[in-house]
Simulated scan of single mutants.
Amino acid sequence: MRIVAKSYLLQYWGYNEKDETDTTLRSKDVVATEETVDQLTANSEQQFFKFIIKDGEELIIRREYIHSLTRQF
């Protein structure tokens, strides 16, 4: 089984360095599998999603913090 992954721009709510009681909209270039994208767009009960960033690091983020995921070409 071949896993297909594509590049995306992930926008998410994250830690605000200027005010630790608040969040700010952040962006990261990520790689996501088709399975992850399908689960995000479906009525999945999955609460956490895994993305690949930089040189293979994993970013695991809770569904409610994800603002948008934009396909990059």
Rank of each mutant, 00 (worst) to 15 (best):
I3E: 15
I3R: 15
V4D: 10
A5G: 07
K6R: 13
S7G: 11
Y8L: 02
L9W: 00
L9V: 11
L10I: 03
L10T: 05
Q11N: 15
Q11A: 03
Y12P: 00
W13L: 12
W13Y: 13
G14N: 06
G14Y: 09
E17F: 13
K18G: 04
D19F: 06
D19N: 13
D19S: 06
E20P: 12
E20G: 07
T21D: 07
T21Y: 15
T24H: 06
L25A: 10
L25E: 05
R26P: 09
S27Y: 15
K28S: 14
V30K: 07
V30W: 00
V30S: 10
V30F: 01
V31T: 14
V31M: 14
A32I: 01
T33H: 03
E34Y: 12
E35D: 07
E35Q: 11
E35M: 09
E35A: 09
E35I: 10
E35P: 02
T36W: 00
D38A: 10
D38K: 07
D38W: 04
L40D: 07
T41Q: 14
N43A: 13
S44H: 01
E45G: 15
E45W: 13
E45F: 14
Q46M: 10
Q46T: 08
Q47K: 12
Q47S: 02
Q47P: 03
F48S: 12
F48K: 15
F49P: 02
F49N: 00
K50N: 07
K50S: 07
F51L: 08
F51K: 05
I52G: 04
I53S: 09
D55H: 11
D55T: 11
G56P: 03
G56L: 03
E57Y: 13
E57Q: 15
E58A: 12
E58H: 06
I61P: 00
R62P: 06
R62C: 04
R62E: 14
E64G: 05
E64V: 08
E64C: 13
Y65Q: 14
I66R: 03
H67T: 12
S68L: 03
S68H: 00
L69F: 06
L69P: 00
L69G: 00
L69M: 05
T70R: 11
T70L: 11
R71E: 10
R71Q: 12
R71A: 15
